[in-house]
């Protein structure tokens, strides 16, 4: 019963909340689809925090998605121990960078008076959720090795079963609690998405990839170097 609530009902609820509230917010408060940048107010700590956090977490998220979508290819990739170790160490280094960046961003919001003033309650909720998620992920990677391998036979088919609308919770029911919390945390963050500045995820200017090209003409002489 508890497995159904946590690993079937909760994920669906989280995605539903994300989509419904996300659409509502888009049509009622479109201007708020933004990261609410505070770069004007402070940019030194922001640089180290934001660069470490974003580059690291984007690669890690990408790895999660790739392992899920191309499970077979991923399994081949890590079939030799050397490749498995390399991949895991890269993942750990990126996790450590993400954690460092996130801690810097949190400290910046706490300690800088100007930034503290423009921080909403939901910002704190989001930062806490992200921190918990990164720590749980790092914990899993360190103490429940090798996640990039066993998740292919447990978490990946569970997520696929969710997508097929026939949840197989028994696949993840016997994983350790830290791992379960990491999975639940992922869906909790999806649920938080439309309530926080996390909405800036969908503002990434990906349309640059297919928009018509533009000719840029400089109407002054290029500086001689």
């Amino acid at each position: 019963m508890i497995d159904i609530v946590l690993f079937a009902a909760f994920p669906y609820m989280a995605v539903l909340v994300a989509v419904l509230v996300g659409v509502y917010r888009y049509f009622n408060d479109r201007f708020s689809y933004s990261s609410f940048s505070s770069q004007f107010l402070e940019n030194r700590a922001l640089f180290w925090g934001s660069v470490s956090w974003h580059y690291a977490v984007i690669v890690i998220l990408l790895a999660h998605v790739l392992a899920l979508v191309f499970s077979g290819g991923w399994a081949t990739l890590i079939a030799a121990p050397v490749r498995l170790y390399t991949l895991e160490v890269i993942g750990l280094a990126l996790s450590a960078s993400a954690l460092l960046g996130l801690v810097l961003l949190i400290l910046r919001r706490l300690l800088n008076a100007r930034i503290f003033t423009v921080t909403s309650t939901m910002d704190w909720v989001l930062l806490a959720a992200l921190l918990a998620q990164v720590v749980l992920g790092l914990w899993t990677a360190l103490f429940y090795r090798w996640g990039s391998d066993w998740s292919l036979a447990t978490v990946a088919p569970w997520l696929v079963s969710l997508a097929k609308l026939s949840p197989q919770t028994e696949l993840v029911a016997s994983l350790p609690w830290v791992v379960k919390l990491h999975m639940l945390g992922g869906f909790a963050i999806i649920a938080l998405f439309p309530f926080t500045r996390l909405v800036h995820l969908v503002t990434f200017p990906i349309t640059y990839l297919w928009r018509p090209y533009q000719v840029v003409v400089w109407n002054w002489r290029k500086k001689q170097t």
Binding site: W48, V51, S52, Y55, A56, E88, V89, I90, L92, A93, L94, S95, A96, S97, L100, A141, L142, R145
Partner: peptide
């Protein structure tokens, strides 16, 4: 060992940035 490798890798990335 893993934690050490992670910290070293992370420092490398910071240096790169």
């Amino acid at each position: 060992q893993l934690a050490l490798l992670a910290v070293a890798g992370s420092a490398l990335l910071m240096g790169l940035a």
